[in-house]
Design a protein around this nucleic acid. Sequence first.
DNA 1: GCAAAAGTGTTATGCGTACACCCATGG
DNA 2: CCATGGGTGTACGCATAACACTTTTGC
Lengths: 233, 233
Amino acid sequence: MQSATIQQEFTKNIFGLSIPVLALDVVIFTIYHGVLCLVLAKREKEPSKGTFILPGGLMKVGISLEENFDDILLRKTGITEVYKEQLYSFGEPDRDTRGHIVTVAYYALVDNDVLLRTADLTRVQLIEYNSLDTTSIGFDHKKIIQYAHQRLIWKFEYTNIAMNILPKQFTLSELQWVYEMILGKELDKRNFRKKILSLEMIQETGELDRDSSNRPAKLYEFKDKELKIVEVF
Amino acid sequence: MQSATIQQEFTKNIFGLSIPVLALDVVIFTIYHGVLCLVLAKREKEPSKGTFILPGGLMKVGISLEENFDDILLRKTGITEVYKEQLYSFGEPDRDTRGHIVTVAYYALVDNDVLLRTADLTRVQLIEYNSLDTTSIGFDHKKIIQYAHQRLIWKFEYTNIAMNILPKQFTLSELQWVYEMILGKELDKRNFRKKILSLEMIQETGELDRDSSNRPAKLYEFKDKELKIVEVF
DNA sequence: GCAAAAGTGTTATGCGTACACCCATGG
DNA sequence: CCATGGGTGTACGCATAACACTTTTGC
């Protein structure tokens, strides 16, 4: 009943006008306990009730896409500081049963510490990327997630984007795990270190990782704050 | 007078609703007489009257972005067969003085023969990319064009996209000119030929270019019809 | 025969890749 | 002293980059 009302309301306000409605959805990646995760919401209403969906919402008039992004991200997830990039716009007329909604999809990368500090985990949850049941994803969000994942791979191959998903300090082994996870292949330790260090995108902090029962690893940090094109692999 | 009426009409129908309106604009590249050109329209009405603008239009409800693209391209330019790719969506609230219009920008590549056969040259014109006076470009279309040009460069570096802007048959020298023009740098003839031939994306047609007063060049054609990732440079 | 563009090979250098052992620490 | 992950160097092959002369045709 409630969902029917909302649906009607939606249709009346928006689809009586014969123009497509604009929305914005966000694919948020993070690394939690060493594995790639997505920040997804559980849809509470029809259509697609009970599925996992991307945090998103209708676009407001009078503010830029980026401001709409910030607004929607905050309202739907509580998260404030992320690396964001526009991904693609999806506009199949049947992608939402309520009517023709064109969505501008973004993807975002967030350091897990920031995520846990700011995210409202009653509204969104962390889902491991690899154990995600793709049949449980609502609307066309599976397609959007796949598109975002592909873009993420490319960005790891060709830029220093990794800085946006790693914590402030990290060991070279941790960095290598992240690359292996994203690129989906094993890398040679010596070659990886040689390549990464030759790119001069990270530097030693002078500190050591003391939380392990073996030889402590040097901690590194990224030099740059800006996205740079570097041919990593 | 006429433009005021249209503007009012526009405002009344669309901006009373407090949602952004969706449009689609296209950056069309072609090569005419060996130089990179854009297909632009001259804006006849306010705002931005008298400037060059991208062919574009409002998005229709109920059809996909690609169908909207085909529809707008045909209505605004007459052109039917192009290679197209979504570029980026632009949504600054002040990008159009009539109200908040979010545009999904596409870029397209078209072979000059197809262009001249189909384009309605009373509505659009060919403008050399390099001699384009950027102050004469309306709305935020200069930004969109620059974005498209950057994308084009990347595509030439990493894919066989060149096949979509060259005629069916071409000489290796012509192909090299196109690459030099797009990439903005000179290439060594021997290395270029070696690289291109090793990529196996083109093949000899067996025919020769007989319209010159010197040694006739072999004519080549592209093997593939699909976009392929190839590291050209 | 001359002008003009087509066509062709070799060498040097840098980069990616493959690969195995010693080191430092905590328990 | 042992288990665990941290850290290090070399050799080979391939791709890129630099470079100049001969060939074919029309006029």
